[in-house]
Design a protein around this nucleic acid. Structure first.
Lengths: 368, 368
DNA sequence: GCTTCCTATGAGAACGTTCGCACAATGACG
DNA sequence: CGTCATTGTGCGAACGTTCTCATAGGAAGC
């Protein structure tokens, strides 16, 4: 039976009850050093009798290890982070690690606060989806102070930390390639495309064409646009910049406005490519409300494979990210760093899967 | 500039650098006790110069408070827990609390492990979706040892802890009532209905009819079935037990088997009620594959309002749970307990919202 | 001028562990 | 019979904070 009062049973109590020193009790309960079988038994019995529960705080204070990893997600509510987190939590649990969770809402101030909180709690390692890939002083500081970091989904330029990302560029290029192969020439895209440090959209497209932009540390939606542009280049199709629907912010209303603008044009695109789950849901909503039939009136490929894409009337062809695997990889990476692995920076790039369904067909002839 | 070595800057360093005692430095940085404006300034400058970062571990060890709450979710990957967790995290962050996350996969052993881990890390309070509502020794022990607990989604019988749940019974009763009002007499139900301690399904239905079952500590799917039965009783409709599709386990394949069995009968139900998100997705999949048109061939009401229910051809009428609110309420409750609130047990029962869409109509005449 | 109160400071003891060290006892080896 | 290495034990010092206490200057009250 446990005590009534708050869990006050300390290792000293156990030691006294077992008739040994606290050092010996510590050795038995902490599983280090040498102890006789006889004392092991005595201490274990005493611990059980008193309902002893180790205080990890005290242990951590002296060992300098908390067996806890911190996670800064964008928004746990989104299927993306939920699945990634699931992967992280599974691997962590298997190793007896705890997961301290925060979310940044993709806002730098929040991320800075979160990292500060986590570091004060002395986490052994940090998994973060950085919301600013250029500056990130706080992350550089954290890394410099000796806290291992694994970046997820995107990378901060020049940060001394491992990363786990997706082959966004190839995924987009392949998908757009399929649309082109099916005969499409006017392919619309709906994407967040929030920040871009090097200028505006025009500058970006020109930069990709000119080969002067490094895709490595771009945000995913920009990487996907990069692939979209590349596919056009490869197949010798000129890019109509007005077909690139830029929400400008990660919000449903902005996405809806961009989608509607694109789909209500007289020269509507014959195919649509949505760059993430939110955009896909919004686009699907718009398509339904405009009564466009898939794939006759419009072909569609979505980034992120959401459950409803399977059982819609024509299934939606979608790019599936290995989300839990991404989380698992990140967790394994951080744990090996915590374990003292000192090898060179590792950058895992996971590959997508294309789920082929019925939302793509040849365009209905009306234009060339 | 921060140090190169691991963050070794302690309060002693700061004190020395500022030319005061560690006590004074502590008072400034910890924000307690009295300090002169002059010393405040000196200490702050020294802290900044050395890149000092407080070690919460040491602080917690002495204060006995970690400003961290533990959460045991079933499966973070599910939209349900993801949204609840979002609510929890928001409230916690606003108060400067951390969130330590684990998931149990609804398995008792995992939950016990998780609670042990969290308690060893000295969390100030615990939010848990208990996966066994009858025994739960570990939760009774935790509560007895002084750790505040808030239960979520379901309640352990006799546990001294607050709770936040949904009005499952009423939600189901109202929804079934609507189907009955629309003219339906054979209403199928698909639900998990995993464990039931007091006997089998027959015993449950008989128990509800006889009024001998206490709905308070039932699992949600059983509470929803409770409401389903009640609605039938209220409207004087006899219950055909073969219309109750019991998956028996929370898995897609089991749900699919139960659904197919129900929908492929010669005397197919004219309406279907699915008891949670997974069941709904599976049912929708089955409905599509059987080419049943909603709402003509089948009316449908789903528990849990998932995003695709909005933009399906006929929208799906759904019962929406206030998920983030549930998390927020749980977090507020636990924080007020941590703050020393000593009032009587609180059991918040949140109310659902019914999103009326196009998946319900009068049954197509063919049977009475 | 004497308390009394408020502000301000530092020394040192907590908090509950682990860890370094000293010291035995034991057995093996030569 | 020394000399090791191996196993086992307890004392007390860490770890980095907060907290209690003792001390003291100054303002206010009478």
């Amino acid at each position: 039976m446990a005590e009534k009062r708050s869990d006050k049973t300390t290792i000293t109590d156990v030691a006294r009850h077992a008739g040994v020193s606290t050092a010996t009790a510590g050795r038995v309960l902490g599983g280090y050093g040498y102890t006789s079988a006889e004392n092991k038994e005595k201490v274990r019995l005493a611990a059980q009798a008193l309902g002893y529960r180790a205080n990890q705080l005290a242990r951590s204070l002296i060992t300098g290890k908390t067996r806890t990893i911190g996670v800064v997600a964008g928004d746990i509510q989104s299927p993306f982070y939920a699945s990634v987190l699931r992967g992280i939590a599974d691997v962590a649990r298997a190793q007896g690690f705890g997961v301290l969770l925060t979310n940044s809402d993709e806002r730098l101030e929040r991320e800075i606060e979160a990292v500060q909180l986590l570091l004060e709690k002395q986490i052994d390692g940090l998994i973060v989806a950085p919301c600013d890939t250029s500056g990130a002083r706080h992350l550089h500081d954290a890394a410099a102070s000796g806290c291992p970091i694994v970046q997820i989904d995107r990378r901060v330029a020049g940060l001394a930390a491992d990363s786990v990302t997706l082959d966004n560029r190839h995924a987009a290029r392949d998908s757009i390639g399929r649309l082109i192969a099916a005969g499409h020439r006017r392919i619309g895209m709906i994407a967040e495309l929030e920040r871009f440090e090097f200028g505006d959209m025009e500058a970006f497209v020109d930069g990709v064409v000119a080969g002067s932009i490094d895709p490595e540390t771009l945000f995913p939606s920009w990487q996907r646009l990069f692939g979209y542009i590349e596919a056009h280049i490869v197949h010798g199709i000129s890019i109509d910049r007005s077909l690139i629907g830029r929400a400008g912010t990660y919000s449903g209303s902005a996405a809806r406005a961009a989608t509607m603008k694109l789909l209500q044009r007289a020269d509507r695109p014959t195919a649509l490519f949505t760059a993430d789950g939110l955009m896909s849901a919004v686009a699907m909503d718009a398509i339904t409300s405009l009564d466009l039939s898939l794939p006759d009136a419009l072909s569609l490929i979505c980034f992120d494979d959401l459950d409803w894409m399977r059982f819609l009337k024509p299934g939606i062809t979608a790019i599936a990210q290995p989300l839990t695997e991404m989380g698992e990889a990140a967790a394994r990476l951080i744990l090996s760093r915590i374990g003292g692995e000192g090898s060179a920076e590792q950058h895992h790039v996971l590959t997508h899967t294309l789920a082929l369904r019925g939302s793509v067909s040849a365009p209905q002839a009306i234009d060339a």
